[in-house]
Computed example of a mutant assay.
Amino acid sequence: MRRAVVLTAAILVAVLGMGVYMFSGHMPGREGAGASGRSGGNETLVVCIAGAYAAEGRYLADAYRNATGIQVVVKPGGSFALAHQIALGVPCDVFMPVAFRRAVAETGPYSPGWAVAFVADSNVIVYSNASLKAFPGMADLLSLYREAYMSNDSRLWYQFFYGLTSGKYPLGVADPATDPEGLYAMLILEAAGELYAGNKSFFIYRMAESRANVTRSSTFYYVVPLKEGQLAFVFSYRSYAEANGLQYLELPPWLSFGDDAYSSWYSRFSWTIPVEGGTAEIAGSPVYLYITVPKNARDRAAAVDFLLFALRERGRLSRYGLAALGRPVVFGNASSLPAALRQLLDNGTLTYGGPLT
């Protein structure tokens, strides 16, 4: 900018400063109205959130109610399953899917065309103390895991995944068509197969042949069976384990899908899921929790206000093992963003990450 345009520069600085001021705790409660001064509309917001993040959703709902007086109903489920419900017109004011942005596109005619990634997670293998007591030999498998993790010996990793998929230990793997955690389980087993068995399908076939997997529509439904020792392991996220007081095995970054530095490696693996009118091949990518507002939100202004609140409070989700992104990332059609988000994107508080799918 030329030095002569001093007034224009001053105005620009003021506008950018106001955007940062708004985002750091002084955002408007609604587009055109304060959050605590709602003018009509619905008295309850419905937040549809990935089942593994039910605890985080309830935390945000309680904090938002305390701040505004607005009631929030949290509806957990598999991200893809929730998307299909939204596409059928089931009420959902805020949609918070995990991991794969494809879930937003699957909301069909109610897709907003955009989503914001605001916290990051990683994949782990979850278990409980009750599991250890219920399944003989599991302690030996955990010892093998520790040796493999410390040494990164490919032979030990092979033995660990060979035992994990043997059928001796009931293994919770959510349905990849309804829950991204199940899809990630397949990608992890593919990566492990390629690295340690020379065949990316090896451990998936072994799991299927031994009938090791116990399938549900969402990992939300594995919490009780794990705590009661009915399951040995579950493929899920670190935050899922920490939020539910469960034990977990960390995976190296090339298997955890939790490190941006390995994005190119992750994208080498993919899984095909059914979608309306056909199928979609979903490539691996880092684990993010997204937030967006479907087109059929009953009170769009209040929904956007909740979204802004979640962005502002994202650092508090570290108590669940989530890592807040320094700058939340917008994916999709930026021109479709609500005005408040467009302003944050324009002033650099948010950053743009690319297309939605």
Rank of each mutant, 00 (worst) to 15 (best):
R2E: 14
V6A: 12
V20L: 13
M22K: 02
A35K: 04
S36G: 15
G37S: 12
G37D: 09
N42R: 13
I49L: 08
A50D: 15
G51D: 04
A54I: 01
A54G: 09
A55M: 07
A63T: 11
Y64A: 01
R65N: 14
R65K: 14
N66F: 00
T68M: 05
Q71I: 14
S79M: 02
L82C: 03
V90I: 11
V94A: 06
V104N: 11
G108W: 06
G108V: 02
Y110L: 02
V116F: 07
V124N: 06
I125Y: 06
S128P: 12
K133D: 08
F135P: 11
A148G: 13
D153K: 08
W157I: 10
Q159T: 12
D179M: 02
P180S: 12
E181G: 14
L189Q: 10
G193D: 09
F203H: 10
I204T: 05
A208F: 10
E209V: 12
S217R: 02
S218F: 00
S218Q: 01
T219R: 00
F220K: 06
Y221D: 15
Y222W: 00
V224F: 03
L226Y: 05
F233Q: 03
V234G: 00
Y240R: 01
W254F: 15
D260G: 06
Y262H: 14
Y266F: 14
I273T: 02
I273G: 01
A280W: 07
A280E: 15
V293I: 15
A302H: 05
L307H: 11
L307R: 10
L307W: 10
F309S: 03
A310N: 12
L317T: 10
S318W: 06
Y320G: 09
Y320C: 07
A324H: 10
A324T: 07
L325V: 03
S336I: 08
G354T: 05
P355H: 03
T357D: 13
